[in-house]
């Protein structure tokens, strides 16, 4: 049991490093980042029980102690990375799981700007009123720090339909905010129109229930 504890502690550390390196990879990155502290906790349980049994049997219990220490260290560090890299990856994974049905809600977002849009916040400080916008839907924890730029090309931006077609409601936030080139490459989007497009998109998101 003591050896098992050491092994789980080491596995947790490896999962943590995997989560750090694969932050950009949906699902796998989340599993590694959030799985690492869970594995470390299991290692700590085994280490503690091993220590206890060794003490009862009058043995040294060195393996259990070592496993406990490795698991505690692995847990603390993996928790830090789960709350940063893991959360970034969860955002990405949630968007992928949600699929196309929620693309117009801006689920697949890599940038802070899009996240604010999900929270129904007009970052430009529009006329929502001081308390009308409440970003505390992330209450209990802050959002992850800015995610690193993805190592692979960003998720595909869906070009907005022409404004004249009444398609502002279906414009994806990813296209409107994330990728400036996608917005400006549309033939009819001058900067004023772009602002107007963004404003209409924000208004199209239903306000949070109160």
């Amino acid at each position: 049991m003591g050896v098992g504890s050491i092994v789980l502690g080491v596995v947790s550390l490896l999962m943590m490093f995997g989560g750090i390196l694969l932050t950009w990879l949906p699902v796998a990155g989340s599993i590694l980042s959030f799985g690492a502290p869970v594995v470390a906790l299991v290692g700590a349980v085994l280490g503690g029980i091993s220590m206890s049994r060794a003490k009862q049997d009058g043995e040294s219990g060195g393996a259990g102690t070592a496993g406990l220490i490795v698991s505690i260290i692995a847990f603390l560090f993996s928790l830090i990375f789960a709350l940063t890299c893991g959360l970034c990856n969860a955002l990405c994974t949630a968007g992928m799981v949600a699929g196309g049905s929620r693309r117009d809600a801006g689920a697949f977002s890599w940038t802070r700007g899009n996240r604010l849009d999900q929270l129904n916040i007009d970052d430009a400080g529009a006329d929502d009123g001081a308390l009308g916008v409440d970003p505390d839907v992330v209450s209990g924890s802050p959002p992850p720090a800015f995610p690193p730029p993805p190592a692979f090309p960003p998720p595909p931006a869906f070009p907005p339909p022409p404004l004249g077609s009444g398609g502002a409601q279906t414009v994806t936030p990813d296209a409107a905010v994330d990728t400036g080139e996608a917005t400006t490459s549309s033939a009819d989007t001058s900067s004023g129109q772009s602002q107007s497009l963004k404003r209409r998109r924000v208004r199209s998101t239903p306000p949070p229930s109160r």
């Binding site: 750090i20 830090i80 990375f81 709350l83 995610p147 190592a151």
Partner: peptide, 24 residues
């Protein structure tokens, strides 16, 4: 200070948030 520091990793950096560090 939401961002404590940036951890250099192969191919870029990873942000370490103050919240996660203080939680641990």
């Amino acid at each position: 200070h939401p961002l404590l520091f940036e951890l250099p990793v192969p191919g870029g950096t990873r942000p370490i948030g103050s919240y996660g560090a203080l939680f641990a």
